[in-house]
Simulated scan of single mutants.
Amino acid sequence: MFDIGFFELLLVSIIGLVVLGPERLPVAVRTIRGWISDIKSFSNSVKTELTGELNIKELNDNLKKVEGLNLQNLSPEVTESLNTLKDAAESVYHPNKKENNN
């Protein structure tokens, strides 16, 4: 991601040592490391949520295709699976709807 070589890292370290001093430099490094860790965990959680949303959208699109075909001669197992998938997709898109019915 960043193209930082050894000499650039050495230069930043020396400037940090001169500007912050030997007492505050370790604290600054720990703080920056914490910020980077927080940013990485946030980006991973956003990535996970987006992947889940895309999977749900794909599932919903596939269910709409099956409904559009209006398949009548399905086995009971397939029909039950489709109904379960419909309920799961509906509960994701409208989570309060099921709670209001109870």
Rank of each mutant, 00 (worst) to 15 (best):
I56F: 14
L82R: 07
S75K: 08
L50D: 13
L59K: 08
R33L: 14
L10V: 01
S13W: 01
S45E: 15
S75A: 04
V19W: 13
T31F: 13
A88C: 11
K64I: 08
N62D: 06
N44T: 05
I39V: 13
A89W: 08
D61C: 01
E23L: 13
L74D: 02
G5M: 04
D38M: 10
A88M: 08
V27H: 09
L71E: 02
A89L: 09
E23S: 11
V19A: 07
E53Q: 10
I39C: 10
W35R: 12
V12E: 11
K47R: 15
L20G: 00
R33D: 11
L11P: 00
L17Y: 05
E77P: 08
L59S: 05
K86T: 03
K47V: 12
L59Q: 05
S41W: 06
I14A: 07
T51P: 06
E58F: 08
F42N: 01
L20W: 00
G52Q: 13
L59F: 02
S43E: 14
S75T: 00
N83E: 10
G34C: 11
T48Y: 04
N55F: 13
E80M: 07
L71W: 01
F7A: 02
A28N: 09
V78N: 01
L10E: 07
N44R: 07
E49I: 14
P22C: 06
I36C: 15
S43R: 08
K57N: 04
E53M: 14
W35G: 11
L69S: 02
T31I: 14
D87F: 11
E8G: 04
I39R: 11
G34Q: 14
D87H: 13
S43K: 12
S81G: 05
E67P: 03
N83W: 02
E8P: 03
D61Y: 00
I32G: 13
D61Q: 03
A88K: 14
N55Q: 14
G21K: 03
V46T: 14
G21F: 01
L10S: 07
T51A: 15
V78H: 12
I32R: 15
S41E: 14
N73K: 04
V46K: 10
V18F: 07
I39F: 09
